[in-house]
Amino acid sequence: MIMKIVDVLICGLLLGGIYALIAVGLSLQYGVARVLNISHGELIMLGAFGTWSLYTFFDINPLISLVICGPVLFLAGFALHKTLFKSLLKSSGSIGAFEGSSLLACFGLLFIIQNIAITSWGADIKGYSYLSVPVNLGGAIFAANRLVTLAFAVGIGITFYLFLARTRLGKAIRAAAQDPAAAGLMGVNINHVLALCFGFGALMAGFAGVLLSMCYPVKATMGLEYTIIAIIVVVLGGLGSIPGSFIGGFILGIIGSIVSYIEPSLSLAAYYIIFILLLLVKPTGIMGK
């Protein structure tokens, strides 16, 4: 019995790690840059397709793709903020107006990226097998690719957390998140910091896409599904908080795993029940202020 509980919990952690990774990028983009990036899932899709293409056509190890797809998406995100969102920020009078107009712009991006993906990769399912071998952990069996994903997710999360907590740039980002005006007065180049932040969000989406493609099939229309999970995790954990995203992801993963074990058809309904109950009890998320 204890074995079973441990098994279900570990399954939940494995799933939760994936959810957390999906969510961290969005948390940064919304929590700091105030862009509710509804096209977040499309960036994940691009990362996954990039990995699939590199693996299928050039035989490049998916883990190496991390350092190819991630930076490419970082640059794309950075450039997007420097051009599109910067001018939106300028033309919107208030943060509320900016949130509205950036949501619309992100919807446009979603449409553009998805159409390009369908025309260039096709709308069918793609996939490959990598590390899909059993690993025996003290009697319980888990998939190697999921363990690797969890390890990378936690590793990336901790690295990024330390980066935010310890480095100058990280402190500037946190300052910008808390009080943009004051941060500007303190000599922080707000626009630059926000663009970097948006870029880091895209980088995280890229990482998530690369790691996801090892465990799940890839298709051009998969984005929105992941965006929705990401939004739920982010709001559950608290906006802009990296530990929050991980806590939120793990909670969803573990609850999903327990419910799947008892009644799989309620596993997704359970996410929303938990989410709604939690918001009713604590309206700003677990780690929210």
């Binding site: 619309l104 712009a105 919807f107 991006l109 553009i112 998805q114 025309t119």
Partner: peptide, 21 residues
């Protein structure tokens, strides 16, 4: 039909850039 999303997306982005209100 084959480029509906692309054109629509571009129109959305341009629209919000040039008419923020």
């Amino acid at each position: 039909p084959y480029y509906y999303m692309l054109i629509f997306g571009i129109i959305l982005v341009i629209a919000i850039l040039y008419m923020p209100k």
